[in-house]
Design a protein around this nucleic acid. Sequence first.
DNA 1: ATTAAAAATAGAATAATATTCGTTAATTTT
DNA 2: AAAATTAACGAATATTATTCTATTTTTAAT
Lengths: 156, 156
Amino acid sequence: MKLDATDQKLLDLLQKDSSQTVKSLAQKLGKSTTPIFERIKKLEKEGLIKGYSARLNTKKIGLKQTVFIAISLQGHTRSYLEKFVKEINDFPEVVECHRVSGGFDYLLKLVVEDIEAYEKFIISKLTLLPYLGNVQSHIVLSTSKETNEVDLSFLA
Amino acid sequence: MKLDATDQKLLDLLQKDSSQTVKSLAQKLGKSTTPIFERIKKLEKEGLIKGYSARLNTKKIGLKQTVFIAISLQGHTRSYLEKFVKEINDFPEVVECHRVSGGFDYLLKLVVEDIEAYEKFIISKLTLLPYLGNVQSHIVLSTSKETNEVDLSFLA
DNA sequence: ATTAAAAATAGAATAATATTCGTTAATTTT
DNA sequence: AAAATTAACGAATATTATTCTATTTTTAAT
């Protein structure tokens, strides 16, 4: 699917604020509501828009600690890797799990209540997994930017 | 603000899918629309809900590469750190910037078109910043989990 | 260039939903 | 136990989403 300039701006408006009415989106894009409504439905159907979600203030809710964990594995059989990833993904504390190049194999991002909850995760969940090699924790001290808005200017 | 069980479930429903109607949310929560509508408005006003956004399929749009960059700085004057962070946050490729403990100072997450765009970022943007120490890139090979839904079960 | 076909847009009509309102029930405070 | 506060309900209204029909614009072929 090819995206024209209107689609690009529309996606950008929606990733910044999806609670806007079709009418206000249409005004910002210099069109009437019908074409914008149809464009949105098409972007949804084509899967370019995966869904809509509320952004929560995790700190205010009580999830004050983010942690990154860099993991190296020892034995690398394919079947084990799959099992490892499956287990990791099932932990609700884990919000991201990436296989990466560089000095280690996996990079996890966790959001937890506090350091105590983090330690609990390490002891009662992570270290129960076999074949763990090096595990290095990076406690987040402060976050200056954290968004899921991506830069769409390259489409222009 | 104290959150009861209904607020917890409501936040969870909304972070999973904010396009649901108030009516359907109310049904799932065993209440009528008015109280759920009012709870949502309160959660918004109190800032527990920061906003609403469309989740985009970055791969399909053409942003196929995620990269993490671990950075150590050389000179650590406070004023310089602030300038550094400000510059980093202004780069649209950077979606996250965290100050972390562990083997390095900052961990960045980038979303870019491809490796080429990533290299361009390194050469024409990142390495222009002064006082850079060690810079280690971790190219994401595959991602098995990537969400911004957080686990709210601890509220129960 | 000209015309046919396809796609995109507009404006009006309708359907669905959000939002408000008046009232009742439940909970907390005194 | 009574008063005050908070949460809830159901109905009424206001907004918004969605559909429909008719034009316009764009695209592609001749």
